[in-house]
Measured scan of single mutants.
Amino acid sequence: NITAAIYDEIQQEMKRAKVSQALFAKVAANKSQGWLCELLRWKENPSPENRTLWENLCTIRRFLNLPQHERDVIY
């Protein structure tokens, strides 16, 4: 289940792992930094009809659900 909290989790994970938006986007969703920036802007007004947005957030959720040491190896 995806909630608005995922946006904060993304920010916290980037700080914790000391990774850039570009690197996080690449490893978590195989996307660009610009894409992640755009995604983070949706926090203010996520559209329930935007299926692509929710699919991408689900992809990021799966990455964030990995154990921390696995995420660190991927970075």
Score class of each variant (00 low, 15 high):
I2N: 05
I2G: 02
T3M: 14
T3G: 04
T3D: 04
T3S: 13
A4H: 10
A4Q: 15
A5G: 15
Y7F: 09
D8S: 12
D8T: 15
D8V: 12
E9I: 02
I10S: 02
I10R: 00
Q11D: 04
Q12V: 04
Q12T: 07
Q12G: 10
E13R: 00
M14G: 03
M14T: 11
M14Q: 14
M14C: 03
K15R: 08
R16W: 05
A17L: 10
A17V: 13
K18T: 14
K18E: 08
K18R: 09
K18A: 11
K18V: 05
V19Y: 01
S20H: 00
S20A: 07
S20N: 02
Q21N: 08
Q21R: 11
Q21A: 07
Q21F: 14
Q21G: 08
A22N: 06
A22T: 13
A22I: 14
L23T: 05
F24M: 08
F24L: 07
A25W: 03
A25P: 02
A25Y: 05
A25V: 08
K26A: 08
K26P: 02
K26S: 09
V27N: 15
A28P: 00
A28R: 00
A28E: 01
A28Q: 01
A28M: 10
A29L: 04
A29I: 08
A29Q: 02
N30T: 08
K31V: 08
K31T: 14
S32E: 08
S32Q: 12
Q33C: 07
Q33E: 15
Q33V: 12
Q33N: 05
Q33M: 12
Q33R: 09
G34L: 12
G34I: 11
G34R: 10
W35P: 11
W35A: 14
L36F: 11
C37W: 13
C37M: 05
E38D: 07
L39V: 10
L40Q: 02
L40K: 00
L40T: 10
R41C: 06
W42Q: 13
W42R: 12
K43E: 07
E44C: 12
E44R: 12
N45Q: 07
P46K: 01
P46M: 08
P46N: 03
S47P: 10
S47D: 14
S47H: 06
P48Q: 04
E49D: 10
E49N: 02
N50R: 12
N50Y: 13
N50D: 13
N50M: 10
N50A: 12
R51Q: 11
R51A: 07
T52S: 13
T52V: 08
L53W: 05
L53K: 09
L53Q: 04
L53H: 11
W54Y: 07
E55Q: 10
E55W: 10
N56C: 14
L57F: 02
L57A: 07
C58S: 09
C58R: 12
C58L: 14
T59R: 14
R61G: 09
R61P: 00
R62N: 02
R62S: 15
F63I: 02
F63M: 02
F63Y: 04
F63P: 00
L64F: 09
N65G: 07
N65M: 05
N65C: 03
N65S: 15
P67C: 04
P67E: 14
Q68T: 11
Q68D: 07
Q68L: 08
H69Q: 04
H69R: 10
E70S: 03
E70D: 05
E70P: 01
E70I: 01
E70F: 04
R71E: 01
R71Q: 03
R71K: 15
D72V: 05
D72N: 03
V73P: 13
I74E: 13
I74D: 14
I74W: 08
I74A: 12
Y75S: 00
Y75A: 00
Y75R: 08
Y75E: 01
Y75V: 01
